[in-house]
């Protein structure tokens, strides 16, 4: 069978198993909404804050479904010896990891959609102004964060250590990238760090697409930064890959 068909079969297989763990699937999809509800309540449902929060939580959802999920997943598969088993078969690595990545991307798309729909239906935000830009930033974001998640898993020695490694990257990035609040008045060094990292660019792109509609032309810099992370992430993921 062709690599494309095998990738699709792997994706279908992963999807089926994902739903076999219903409570995990439920919390996976509910977590960003819980954040949205809680923080919106804290801020008193002001549109100005929601205009920060909805793109911010959408960006965070992209990161948790791809970066976090794949770092955990690959570490687990390696520790269990499942990667080693697959390596002994004629399954092309591109098809196998493509299937895993597509599974993560599906979760990212579902979560971003949920957050956007809830933002509109419950909090009365406008529908996204630029769907194409939203799709484009989602796409580049999942490739960057997905490959970085796989790359990080190479550094994680075992599954028990995975939460520590993942959170060490995830939490600081969440707090400086304008996920829950506007970071327009961040101290210079932190602002520079946020700009160097990928999450802020996803969120900026999302804000433009969902809230301001300022047009892709104004966010080519963010897109370029993300694309650079995507290229670097893929290179790291491939270069340092460990099957065992």
């Amino acid at each position: 069978m062709s690599t494309r068909v095998l990738l699709w079969r792997q994706f279908r297989f992963e999807r089926r198993l994902f739903w076999r763990n219903p409570s995990a699937a439920f919390f996976n999809f509910m977590l960003p909404l819980i954040f949205l509800f809680l923080i919106a309540s804290v801020f008193g449902h002001k549109t100005k804050d929601l205009n920060t929060l909805v793109p911010g939580i959408s960006g965070m959802a992209v990161m948790t479904t791809t970066f976090t999920a794949l770092a955990f997943n690959i570490t687990f598969l390696r520790e269990q010896g499942i990667l080693k088993r697959m390596r002994g078969t004629p399954m092309p690595p591109v098809a196998y990891f493509g299937g895993l990545l597509l599974n993560a991307v599906t979760n990212a798309v579902v979560q971003v959609s949920l957050v956007v729909v809830v933002g509109h239906v419950i909090y009365g935000l406008h529908w996204p102004r630029d769907w194409l830009e939203l799709a484009l930033f989602t796409l580049v974001g999942v490739v960057a964060f997905g490959s970085l998640g796989i790359a990080l898993s190479h550094a994680i020695p075992n599954f028990d250590a995975a939460p520590a490694y993942v959170n060490a990257v995830f939490l600081p990035m969440i707090f400086i990238s304008g996920t829950f609040y506007s970071t327009s008045s961040l101290p210079g060094a932190l602002d520079a760090a946020a700009r160097a990292l990928p999450l802020k660019h996803v969120i900026d792109g999302f804000r433009a697409a969902i809230v301001t509609g300022s047009g892709l032309g104004h966010h080519l810099g963010a897109l370029a930064a993300l694309a650079a992370w995507a290229v670097g992430g893929v290179a790291l993921a491939v270069r340092f890959f460990r099957w065992e």
Partner: peptide, 22 residues
């Protein structure tokens, strides 16, 4: 192999069928 893991949430049939397609 001397020891390897499985997709534990898959059934026996699904596991074997999944492997066969490769």
């Amino acid at each position: 192999l001397q020891s390897t893991g499985f997709y534990t949430r898959a059934t026996v049939r699904e596991s074997v069928e999944h492997m066969a397609v490769a």
